[in-house]
């Protein structure tokens, strides 16, 4: 088990969020979408220019920018 930032995750890799390290509006938006510690995420793809990244969370698809994924720490197997 290692902890990495969500940006570093590869396609089709799964993990569990351990921390969201950002305050203010961005932090709130990330958490509002269910990206809170304990949630399982899976990277399902990246846009043609490798940014933003598309995720599967709690059964739905979500996209965020790499710069936003930088604040999310994930534990991967």
């Amino acid at each position: 088990m290692v902890r990495i930032m969500l940006r570093r995750m590869k396609e089709n890799q799964s993990g569990v969020i351990t921390a969201v390290r950002v305050k203010g509006e961005l932090g709130r938006r990330i958490r509002d979408m269910g990206l809170v510690p304990g949630t399982a995420v899976k990277v399902c793809g990246r846009a043609p220019l490798y940014d933003p990244v598309a995720l599967k969370v709690m059964g739905f698809s979500l996209t965020l920018r790499n710069s936003e994924a930088d604040h999310i720490e994930v534990e991967v197997g």
């Binding site: 509006e25 961005l26 990330i30 979408m33 933003p52 698809s61 979500l62 996209t63 965020l64 936003e68």
Partner: peptide
């Protein structure tokens, strides 16, 4: 503005 966005089915 945060981009965080749902990709609806």
């Amino acid at each position: 503005t945060p981009f965080v966005m749902e990709l609806p089915p």
